[in-house]
Simulated scan of single mutants.
Amino acid sequence: MNKAELISAMSAHSELTKKDSKAALESMLAAITKSLSEGDQVQVNGLGTFALSYYPARAGRNPQTGAVIEIEGANKPVFKPAKALKDNL
């Protein structure tokens, strides 16, 4: 399911128009992105938790030359599904 299909499904399961469903989805995604960028985690009951996880710097190799390179550490978003979501699947 892509974003357009999700918007259509949201519209079909609620009394919202597709335009309102799109605005709601984009608003939710913007709020999650903003919270993660501030270092907070977002917990949605029944769905799961969005958080940042720090991956430290490490050594890697350039596949073309075989030279050793340093890969910088980075914060990456992670999602941990809630028990209710896992049980429904």
Score class of each variant (00 low, 15 high):
Tyr54His: 11
Tyr54Val: 02
Glu70Leu: 07
Arg61Ala: 09
Ser35Phe: 05
Tyr55Lys: 15
Asp20Asn: 13
Lys22Glu: 15
Tyr55Asn: 13
Ser21Asn: 08
Gly39Lys: 01
Ala57Trp: 04
Ile71Gln: 12
Gly48Arg: 02
Arg61Gln: 13
Asn75Pro: 05
Ser21His: 05
Asp20Gly: 06
Gln43Val: 10
Ser21Met: 11
Val68Lys: 15
Leu29Gly: 05
Glu26Thr: 14
Met28Glu: 04
Thr33Trp: 02
Lys22Tyr: 06
Phe50Leu: 00
Asn62Glu: 04
Gly46Tyr: 06
Ala59Phe: 08
Ile69Leu: 15
Ala23Thr: 12
Glu70Cys: 05
Gln64Lys: 15
Phe50His: 02
Val44Lys: 07
Ser53Lys: 04
Ala67Tyr: 07
Glu70Arg: 13
Glu26Phe: 12
Val68Tyr: 06
Ile69Phe: 10
Tyr55Ala: 14
Phe50Pro: 03
Gly73Gln: 03
Thr33Tyr: 07
Ala23Asp: 06
Leu36Cys: 11
Leu47Gly: 00
Gln43Asn: 10
Gly73Val: 02
Ala74Ser: 09
Asp40Leu: 05
Ala67Gln: 14
Gly66Asn: 00
Gly46Pro: 04
Asp40Tyr: 03
Ala24Pro: 03
Arg58Gln: 12
Lys76Cys: 10
Val68Trp: 10
Gly48Tyr: 01
Glu70Pro: 06
Thr33Lys: 15
Tyr55Ser: 14
Asp40Met: 07
Met28Asn: 08
Gly73Ser: 03
Tyr54Ser: 06
Ala57Gly: 04
Glu26Gln: 13
Gln64Val: 05
Pro63Glu: 00
Glu26Trp: 12
Ser53Met: 02
Leu29Arg: 06
Ser53Asp: 01
Lys18Ile: 11
Asn75Glu: 11
Ala31Arg: 13
Lys22Pro: 06
Phe50Asp: 03
Gly66Pro: 02
Val68Asn: 14
Glu72Phe: 13
Gly39Ser: 00
Leu29Cys: 10
Ser27Asn: 08
Ile32Ala: 07
Glu38Leu: 12
Ser53Trp: 00
Phe50Glu: 03
Gly46His: 00
Thr33Leu: 08
Lys22Asn: 10
Lys76Tyr: 02
Tyr55Val: 15
Ala74Val: 04
Ala24Lys: 00
Asn62Val: 04
Asn45Arg: 10
Ala31Asp: 10
Gly60Pro: 03
Ala57Pro: 11
Asn45Ile: 14
Pro63Phe: 09
Gly48Phe: 02
Glu26Ala: 08
Thr65Cys: 01
Met28Trp: 08
Ser53Asn: 08
